[in-house]
Structures are given as C-alpha cells and as structure tokens.
Design a protein around this nucleic acid. Sequence first.
DNA 1: GCGTCCAGGTCTACC
DNA 2: GGTAGACCTGGACGC
Length: 297
Amino acid sequence: MATVVELSACDDFDFRSTVYSHGWSELEPFRLDTAKWRLTYTFRVSRDRAFSGDIFSECGVVKVVTDAPQHVVPTIERDTRHILRLDDDLGEFYRSIASVQGLSWVAAKGAGRLLRSPTVFEDLIKTICTTNCSWALTKTMVGNLVTKLGTAAHGPERSSRSNAFPTPEAMASVDAGFYRKEVRAGYRSPYLVELAETVASGRLDPEAWLSSDLPTGELKREIKKLKGVGDYAAENLLKLLGRYDGLALDSWLRSQFYKKHNGARACDDAVIEQHYADHGRWRGLAMWCDMTEKWIV
DNA sequence: GCGTCCAGGTCTACC
DNA sequence: GGTAGACCTGGACGC
C-alpha cells in the first residue's frame, strides 16, 4: 500500500520553477512527467535498498507517494526537503533583486531554488559528467552509471523504475576500462575511479562541504583539487551547496549572456563578472535566473 | 559514407 | 600566471 508523505513548504516555494531550475530533472535517477507534473526519484534508504517516490505539489503542499515501508519514510522526507531546497531562505535574494530591471519576475515565480541530488557525491559526479560534452552525452553517461552500477528499486513495477544512484563503493568497485566502455565517460574515466575510491575509503567526505566554515574561495580551492574539476565544475557544485559567489561560466552560459546583453557578440568574462558584480554573494544565482528566464516565465 | 567541427572543460607541460 | 595542445564521445553538418 502506497504511503503519502506531506511536506510543508514556505510561501515562496514553487514546484515547477524548482524542477525546471536546471537540467538535473532530466538526469537519472530523476524522471519527470510533465503531463502529470510529477518528479520521480529513486531514493537510497540503505547501502542495498532503494525505493521510488513520486513527488508533486498540491494546494501548496509538497507530497511524495511511495511504496517504501514506514520506517524509511523519514529518510525520504529528509532527502526530498534537500532535493527541493524546501528549507532554503531566499528572502534576502528576492529583496535584493526586487527593483532590478529584468529580474523582478524571479520572486513572483518562486525561482532560484536549484534542484539538487540528496548527496553532494551524486551532484559532484553528475557535474563532472557535464564537462566538455553535449548535454545528450551527459544524459548517456549518468544513465549508464545508474543502470549499470545503481541499486534496483524495491516494490511493484520494478522494471519501469530507475535504479538508485550508485554508491561510492559501487563506483570504486570497477576500473577505468569499465567507465570507458560501459559508461562512455572517455577521458573522465580515471577521474571518476579516483573520486569514488577517495570517497569510499573515507579520505574525502563531500557531504561535509554542506556545513563547511571555509570561505567560498577556500572551499572552491578544496573542490578543485579533485581531478576533472575546474572552475566551471567547482562553481556549479558550489551553487548546489548554496553558495552563489561564482558564476560557473561555461560555453552555454556565455553564449546566452552574449545574446541577451551584448548584441550576440563575444566579450571577456570580466565583462560578465562586472555585469553581475552588484549582486554580491548572490551574483551566481542572479545570472543563472537572468539566463534561464525563458525556461520559467 | 566520410571527414570535420564542436559542445554546458580540464589537465599537463612549458614558458 | 598564462597559454597551447591533448583528451573522449557523439550529433550536426557539408561534401
């Protein structure tokens, strides 16, 4: 029998704006049904058990329908709050852009909450899979990781469900050849093996970055020590950690800026930095909202 | 069918 | 610290 978990959300939370905040909803183990507006995710509740949950919003209440047993519901509730950032306070950000031309829509649409995974490890692996390739290839790599190394979901209709995202231990159990041949990760393969081994062995705990006291600049340097993580990847992950100081510029973001603010002409990154400088610690989020307005509005 | 380019970059060697 | 070249994949495009 299915369980319905109800989660409280603050007044400015918007389910669709959060789901559409960036491309994560297209990466397994997320699955998005835009006809019913349900976001499905396969939650890992222990090392070898996973359950699927359908997440949606109804009358201002976020709900999760799942076949998971009652004793793991708190895990699903906690992860859902994290995924949708239900406890993020964006009031300061909304107030700072209330009078900014071109950004007044953000607060009205409840935009700015960037969808994320339940673990920093999952977001880190996915971010590496976005580097130097098409979005189609990113989806292929992440899909292969989940299908070939992830834990199968329990419950009825298992065959139609995505596996859970693989654990660091599962990812560390295969070699670079597997990542090249089966995951299609190419030159990223040894980076993924090294990262998985480092986390699985306990030498690195990416989850600790969520509560790190380090200034953003120092934390960025820590993250960049990982192979395969450069400026873009580190700043993208920092945004998912809730730190928006960096713009996480990549070729797509640059091209969008050129079209919207520079007459479709290329310019130096310094010009882009200057454009959003007034937004202070929120500049990365301000730019992201500015560039993705068409997705939300 | 084939070759080339390039996409939501990063690493290493070299200067 | 700045820069050039190499690194994988796969879709788009021109021929």
